[in-house]
Design a protein around this nucleic acid. Sequence first.
RNA 1: GCGGUCGUAGCUCAGAUGGUAGAGCGCCAGGUUGUGGUCUUGGAUGUCGCGGGUUCGAGUCCCGUCGAUCGCCCCA
Length: 417
Amino acid sequence: MSSQKLQPPRGTRDLIGDEFRRHHRVIKTARRISALYGFEEWATPIFEDTRVFARGLGETSDVVSKEMYVFEDRGGDSVTLRPENTAGVCRALVSNGLTQSLPRKVFYAGPMFRYERPQAGRYRQFHQIGAEILGVAEPLADAEVIACGYHIQRELGIAEGSVLEVNTLGDTESRDAYRAALVLHFSAHRDSLSEDSQRRLEKNPLRIIDSKDEGDRRLVADAPTIAAYLTPTARAHWDVLRRHLDAFGVPFRENPRIVRGLDYYSHTAFEFVTDRLGAQGTVMGGGRYDGLVEEMGGPPTPSVGWAAGVERLAMLLEAGDLTPPAPRLVNVIPVSEAEEGVAMAVLQSLRAGGIAAEMGYRGNLKRRMERANKQNARAALIVGEAEAARGVVQLRDLDAGTQEEVPVDALVERLRG
RNA sequence: GCGGUCGUAGCUCAGAUGGUAGAGCGCCAGGUUGUGGUCUUGGAUGUCGCGGGUUCGAGUCCCGUCGAUCGCCCCA
């Protein structure tokens, strides 16, 4: 292989063959299940005005501060390849005046872009599926989106491998009070904190409770938990959510360490995690974002949703050997050029009858038979001079190796069985 | 952005201590000018990721770079 050969850009990859099929299976399943829950699919642009993300996700979040593909277009506007799609969906809701027709349940699937170092289950162009319920404050909506996400994983056969962990971040008031308490607590032990966590103390104190550092964990153990700081409203939301999850039959584990990276979350935060993907354990993550639509210039619109990494779901699928088999073709073979016309007519009649069929582009009988075998065709239809004259073909079963003569008129019926 | 490992044919990989490249699979052609899968004969593979350095000589040693991979940060 020469170095001149063009390769896909770092962190991107081609989806071909089984990989494409796995990927597609995830999306197709998610589409079908989300429709069962009443979600409608939207497709929003893969790039947006940079402000959509800068404002939506929070200027200090990692995604915005160092992972965005930002560039100036020829007109001098700053645009950004979307790093996630919740902000885009909220922008679309506002742009299209749909805040007049709430609630709205939206499903999407498509590529996202984040400038990061590639790793197992992490790419610069990756794909997400996502579901959002816009305009509902009741915890029933939180429970329903989660139930939908869980259902999709079950349908994919990967639910046993992932665990739903849920937490509440409270409303703004609760969170501010909690953050202040954490800062107070950790500031007292500042010097014992890891380097990363000292930085977090300034930037995002909540993150400290999610630290993997051993020393940090000991300090986290005596740190205050949010429970004590929840306002009555926030506590009620949290209590009802857990009841609803039970009612929907969604198993979950409470994890007070769940803190999500994007600034827009409030109340519910959750992740489906697995230990089967190396360092990238989160397979689906989301939460409630009551302030985001307002950030996009709309009215206050309480909303909740999740996004899941298609690559990560597909990787789990791989372990379970769940790739659907490729459809097998029937291969039509003219013995010589003289029968090509007849063979083409046969070919089209098969396709019209719903039978997947193909004809080679060149080569003698032997070459075509080899080709049919190589592509794992289920049957070869051989059309020679004698057959063409009598309106029949030789139908060769490539698995059994048996061959019989079948009238052209009877082919579709015969191959359907 | 930081650290570890790796980079030889389309694929999987072999090439002790430096002496200008090999196997299996796959591919192409023949044995079989109306019949595949098995068998058999023959054939083509490649700037040994890229650039520089050391050396009479580098796939092999050194530096850089790009890419892959694993981990940190963060996230899907």
